[in-house]
Simulated assay, not measured.
Amino acid sequence: MMLGLRTAIYPVADLGAAKAWYAEVLGQAPYFDQPFYVGFAVGGFELGLLPNAQPGTNGPQPLWGVDDIEADFARLLALGATELDPISAVGEGIRVAAVQDPFGNRLGLIQNPLFDPSAVR
């Protein structure tokens, strides 16, 4: 039985540059830092960086929860990301957006007032 999301892994060609950028984006150092993988703790989940891998914007598209999508979207752009999908309302007060990180990966955001953190297993 699947329990729910635990880790979203992003492939990167330059692990050092990606680690520095994501540390700035997340406001913290990684909790796991090895030459073969870097992991950041994000709200009870993990954002992982896989070195020597091919980045891309196709494939699975995890969305990371935010409280203020306008501010977080603008901050990512200011830190060097490029817009993929503008902020869009998708119903029920939910808004989504996506950027491409400086390494070529899609980084999705979601502001979802219906998300229930107590339901996370």
Rank of each mutant, 00 (worst) to 15 (best):
F103N: 01
V96A: 11
G80P: 03
N52Y: 03
V25H: 04
P117H: 05
V120N: 00
V12R: 06
N112D: 14
P62I: 11
F73P: 00
L79R: 00
G48C: 10
D116N: 00
R121T: 03
T82D: 13
Q34I: 06
G4E: 10
P62R: 01
A20R: 11
V96L: 15
R121C: 03
R6N: 15
R106W: 08
I9D: 10
T57M: 14
I110F: 02
Q100R: 13
G44H: 04
V120Q: 03
V90H: 11
L49E: 04
D14A: 08
R75Y: 03
P102Y: 02
V12D: 04
A71K: 03
Q100H: 13
G27A: 13
V12T: 01
G56T: 11
G44L: 05
R95D: 08
D68A: 12
F103I: 03
L50D: 07
P51Y: 01
G4K: 05
F32W: 09
L26S: 02
Q100C: 15
A89S: 15
E92C: 08
A119H: 03
D85K: 00
S88Q: 15
A13T: 05
F45K: 05
P35H: 01
G59W: 14
E24C: 10
V38L: 05
A41G: 14
E46Y: 03
P51F: 01
P51I: 04
I9Y: 09
W21Q: 07
L63F: 14
P62D: 13
D33E: 09
A18S: 02
Q54F: 13
R121Y: 06
A98P: 01
L47T: 04
E70Y: 01
V90Y: 12
G56A: 14
F40K: 00
G16L: 15
V38Y: 00
A74G: 08
D14Y: 04
L77M: 10
E24G: 09
L50E: 12
F36I: 15
G104Y: 05
V42M: 09
E70C: 09
A18Q: 00
Y10D: 04
L114V: 00
I69D: 07
L84S: 12
A119Q: 02
E70F: 08
G93N: 07
P11C: 11
N52T: 07
W21E: 04
Y37C: 14
F73R: 02
P117S: 10
D85T: 05
D33Q: 02
Q54Y: 12
G39N: 11
F115C: 10
F36S: 15
Q54L: 15
L79I: 10
Q61W: 12
P30C: 13
A98M: 11
R106Y: 12
D72F: 08
G80L: 08
G65A: 11
N58C: 13
P86W: 14
M1S: 11
F45V: 09
I110M: 09
D116G: 04
A18K: 04
G104C: 09
N105G: 10
V42E: 01
D72C: 11
F115H: 10
L79E: 03
I110P: 00
P35D: 08
A23Y: 07
S88L: 15
